[in-house]
Design a protein around this nucleic acid. Sequence first.
DNA 1: TTGATATATAAATAAATTAACATATGTTTG
DNA 2: CAAACATATGTTAATTTATTTATATATCAA
Lengths: 100, 100
Amino acid sequence: MTVVKDKLEADKLLKVAEILKTIAHPVRLKIIEVLSDEKRTVSELMEATAIEQSLISHHLIKMKDKGVLSSYREGKNVYYQLVDDHITKIFDCMEGCSFI
Amino acid sequence: MTVVKDKLEADKLLKVAEILKTIAHPVRLKIIEVLSDEKRTVSELMEATAIEQSLISHHLIKMKDKGVLSSYREGKNVYYQLVDDHITKIFDCMEGCSFI
DNA sequence: TTGATATATAAATAAATTAACATATGTTTG
DNA sequence: CAAACATATGTTAATTTATTTATATATCAA
């Protein structure tokens, strides 16, 4: 059996839990998946996810708040992007699990 | 920028979200961390997490329901263990992220 | 400057999660 | 078989999160 190398401190567990909670939603995972390719505008994300404007905005802002995404405006559009690509590894990680 | 290899189907995103939601809690992460070493009884997990009997039982049963843990009885004790060690990779994955 | 387009915000509600407490069940031991 | 121990279950309350609808703000183009 593999042992987790270093035990995570309680506060780090909290932080990890917070991030996981932030992304533990099918739409948010889809957003991450789409953004793994490259940055997208809100409109593009709406189309990619088939989620209406206000709701996707809520999702995006929450993910931004929690540090997973960042955004910048360019004219009428706002682009969202992953703060750290590393997060996409979570798909590999999960897919490796027998129960998925 | 790294691209996620294969796009996950909608139903797989749902499944992944379900699992992430299941473990996105500091106590549950701690349980996974402890079990990464080896199987433990409920009592041992209570001690390791400092969580009271009923509450930890609820956590354990939820994780078992979702397929993350399995359990078996041995006398008065019930042992819980990880169904798939692979799940512990999530710690590495998260620790690699700049926002953690 | 007005209208159109893109996005954000606010408020209300619905739904899900977590925690706490009380009680029940299963197993061993005397 | 009764008491003790380990764990599970049921119920409710508290809290958090997700969704919807309506409205506001920002930017561009005519």
